[in-house]
Design a binder for these strands. Structure first.
Lengths: 204, 204, 204, 204
DNA sequence: CGCTAACCGAGACGGTACGTCAAGTCTTAAC
DNA sequence: GTTAAGACTTGACGTACCGTCTCGGTTAGCG
């Protein structure tokens, strides 16, 4: 967060003069990445193609983004999506339903789905990127984990809950459908899924 | 499982003479694929490298496997793994626990995990392969779905169960952990996961 | 021309039983070669393509013709052209004019021109074929040389004529135009070319 | 002429940035091409082999030369041979004798002969290259044609001379011997060939 | 207000793998 | 028991991107 920041958070650039980064180029690259991602899919997206499409030198892309994954991640977080919702409805059922139906809503935005699937793929192929990706995933898990802890504080859930696994139960089925594509993600099913989930978590 | 079969099931080759396919070459390719998969990961595996490693002509690989995904899929199913277990313990809890702990046991075989993750990645990048992959996934889902139907027949589970989603609850968290790698897969947790799952499925 | 014979003159086939050669296959190959030669030119003609086009196994082609050049040479002599004319008009001017205008007439048969040019090209690239080709060329040179000798006998030409070079003067310009293609070959110009040639050969 | 120029004469590259072309790489490629041409002949020369031999990336070769023919043509004109002689002795007999004996002298340089024969072969096989080759041939024809025109101006030859055919009579026999190889090219025979030729051209 | 550092574009470089194609050899099945 | 079918090894093809590397030419800000 914090500053306007460059894609990779450089802790302190220590500017001592020199030409300043072109915002035009940055936007052009991110837009081109998003566009090509939508048009051809993650696998067919190349840095060379993005540079060409953005009318930007290849070296400019490489200067600011060290991998295809980093670029798409940036395009995803800055261009594709804006904000992670962090609902606070007072009950865990409400919070989770809101969160999950929001997750499932991705089916309405094919570009986002394509980006997410591509990022997950990249994480499997490039260990360096996997680390970044894992951190991003972790940031989203934390949102859910916080909901669950709040629920425990309100005695809605048992104190000995396996938070890790409970969080997996939220994200796992979502990713599984997204990646395999055997069945659609339907926001309307969110509440029934949550009910079932909470039943399980509350124990017999 | 029909015959010894060739990688892509050709409905009937109609041999009318000519040199027969070299079983040596076939095994060498599959073994090389498995070996390189283990050594370098799916992303770093190339058809060129497999051919080199197997002491086989590149065109021979291309003749029989039309993509990297198809090759690894074949290597996975023929070399890496032998048999999908299909437990029948008499109770759904037993069946699922057996099945899931078996799933989680993949953590003991890094090669298998790498293969699975690579296949999932490929499915995101190559739509043509995705179709094959989806079929394979479906075949594994069917095993679980059958268990659930048997459970319904035994009145262990309600008849109005959403089989699709229930099956997702079995595989989703597994794949999610496998792919993200934020936490280990522990076979010992299988029974508690199953208990929680069944609690949820049985309704309030 | 002896027997039904195979393209390369085997001194004695000595059949001792076994499957007989398919005449169908032989014709199909020659026809396919001629057709592809016409359609795509010598450079784009491949043994693989001929076999495919003739619905014949590649090895069948290889058994009977040991190179692309040999095949085209065969197709040329058996399919494309029938007979070398050997005029005898009584005067060297008549003989040469007849022969040369016949040569130049090739411009009316693009297939023949293509074949000849391809054979010459092949001879530059494959030393083994060059030897065969040279023999064939020699056989055509002999026809001209014989005319010149007859002319000397009739005192139409000086006895100390350099037969080798004189023959080159007949074929050289022909091949040069055929190969370079900078100007057309016109049969009507044959007689003037011959007149000029004889002027030169007869000395001052 | 003019400048050091790049292989394909670009009338003005208009540098607008970008790394400059490596002269080292250019020379290495041309030298390697000349060397391999000498060692193995035109047919056995491959772009892949040239790149390997020159310690240069294959893509660098393809960047600058669009075909094997273009490469060898360049190697031939820049490395193998330096300059076309353009004699001016005052008489057409002298000019032609000088020119032709120079032509025939190629027999002393096997590499040049091999290159020429290979280029002619390529022109038969690759229509695109044929065009380039024809232009090069034309440039050499022009030298001879100019000599003949000068001779006409000096009344050494008749004004109604067929320049096209006369030029063919100079080059045709040369190429014919070079390509067929049925007899050697002997520079000493140049003057007698010229005498004969002029006899013919001057008419009865 | 000129220096200077960092940017930007262009694009060549050595690489690697791609997927295709044809060459020519070898083994098996058919006649 | 020869011929024909077809899988095999080999190796070059030409293409596409990779990531790195010069270049020439801006464009701040600092001194």
């Amino acid at each position: 967060m914090a500053t306007k920041d460059s894609p990779e958070q450089n802790p302190r650039p220590v500017r001592t003069g020199g030409r300043v980064r072109s915002e035009d180029a940055r936007r052009a690259v991110l837009d081109a990445a998003a566009e090509l991602l939508e048009a051809a899919g993650y696998g067919a997206l190349t840095i060379e193609g993005v540079a060409r499409h953005a009318n930007v030198a290849k070296s400019t892309v490489y200067r600011w983004w060290k991998s295809k994954g980093a670029l798409v991640m940036d395009a995803y977080t800055h261009t594709v999506v804006t904000r992670v919702p962090e609902p606070d409805t007072g009950t865990v059922a409400g919070d989770l339903t809101s969160f999950i139906s929001d997750l499932y809503r991705i089916s309405a935005y094919p570009l986002r789905g394509r980006a997410l699937r591509g990022l997950m793929a990249e994480a499997q192929l490039d260990p360096a990127f996997a680390e970044h990706f894992r951190q991003w995933v972790q940031s989203r898990r934390t949102v859910v984990t916080r909901m669950l802890i709040a629920a425990i504080d309100r005695d809605e859930l048992p104190a000995d809950l396996d938070l890790e696994h409970a969080t997996d139960l939220v994200f796992g089925p979502f990713w599984y459908r997204l990646l395999v594509g055997h069945a659609p993600l339907d926001p309307d099913q969110a509440s029934s899924h949550v009910a079932q989930l909470l039943n399980g978590l509350r124990g017999s």
